[in-house]
Nucleic acid binder design. Structure first.
Lengths: 217, 217
DNA sequence: TGTACATCAGTGAACGCGCGTTCACTGATGTAC
DNA sequence: TGTACATCAGTGAACGCGCGTTCACTGATGTAC
């Protein structure tokens, strides 16, 4: 059982090239959108021949799948870092916004327009649960009681997604609202819908966040 | 000044074909996404030769621009119908959700992942204002007072987008929250992020809506 | 340390494909007298 | 109503392009003895 043996130079190199391919892929997505992602174009940018990339990825679809997984992983790690540092919902919210502003393409790859026919890789549902668990923990740890609302009774009957979390339905509701409301502000901000409006999106985001937390006052 | 003279058969035909092209375009977007939109494929479906489409649209970009404008127009009309029927925020919300569920591709063309480098046609900003005006009217007409919140003071200084509406900043805030929160729920619902969760998205939407309106109680 | 072999990264040619777009043309429809 | 001409929808060939992907190959790097 000597699995994690030292990496050979070749393995190291392979990892580096795979990483560079992904980097260029993100650049390309930032420039022309995910649908314009082209293996040949990436190869040209790296200074390789198109077919060379097939040593590293099975094909275009494989690369995209990898990017989607990385995006999920990246977001979950950003939230996880905050979570491990003991952050509550407010800290998680700012970690979310910070990550989204830093990686808008990745954010949209997760939450943007779905591509008909494309099914997200299995792994992403586990990561989504992981993130939801952090949210539930954060809200469950909040002081005070969350007043129950009509939707909670419906939620109580449909909580198969809670990962076995012991929190009450009102807390699930809070976590859901956190997700949908912050996504609402963030996605419109990132898509530029506030650009011509003049107000500061960060303040709207904070206002939404305050509103979510005010329930516990 | 006899502008609206009767349409000749040729004009009528032209209008029909332009409409059919758009219909097929939407079908194609529903099947493979907006980025896969191909003039040649549309022509084939209609039973025409590729180049024939150039009699009706200047090119691919022109067609897409037309689709974007139609999407905005369609949403504004759906809201406008409710508005003219005297609907308040609740009616507008349901008109919004109804339209979005009926035309998810159009919804995403408006609010989905932005394509880097693509600039929405001028006309859309006017339509966006038109929709915002309906929201402002609806909230302004609501009975009761909207309690002021911290963000309102910032908004009061950045309301160039209000179209000259006389409502106070608290009302602008309400309209903004209406937009971002309902979009948050809707876009996640349409993208399928709730699919495996089991609860009824309509109820979550209603819960968010109730929450927006509860402020006035 | 040196040689023989295996592994593997990367190349260049080639495949078929569908794309947007242009062009010169045909034939049908509409208009003017 | 009939003829002469103008308008316009649609065709088919052709353009250059970039795409994903396969294949047989070269040459460098690593491994075993």
């Amino acid at each position: 059982m000597e699995k994690p043996r030292a990496k050979t130079p070749r393995e190291r190199y392979r990892v580096e090239v795979r990483a560079e391919i992904k980097e260029r892929a993100w650049e390309q997505i930032a420039t022309a959108g995910a649908s314009a992602l082209s293996l040949n174009a990436i190869a040209k940018q790296i200074g390789m021949s198109g077919p060379a990339l097939y040593r590293y990825y099975a094909g275009r679809d494989d690369l995209i799948t990898e990017l989607v997984k990385d995006a999920y992983r990246g977001l979950a790690d950003a939230l996880g870092e905050a979570s491990r540092a003991g952050a509550g919902p407010e800290g998680l919210a700012h970690a979310l916004r910070g990550w989204a502003l830093k990686h808008p393409q990745r954010y949209f790859l997760i939450y943007g327009t779905p591509v008909p026919g494309y099914h997200a890789p299995e792994e992403t549902v586990a990561i989504a649960s992981e993130m939801m668990a952090m949210l539930l923990d954060a809200f469950a740890a909040l002081p005070g009681d969350s007043p129950s609302r009509p939707f909670d009774t419906h939620l109580a009957d449909h909580r198969s997604w809670d990962g076995g979390h012991p929190a009450g339905a009102a807390v699930l509701h809070e976590a859901l609202a956190f997700w949908t409301r912050l996504h609402g502000v963030l996605s419109l901000e990132l898509a530029g819908h506030f650009d011509a409006m003049g107000f500061d999106p960060a303040r709207l985001f904070q206002a939404e966040l305050d509103d979510l937390l005010a329930r516990r006052a």
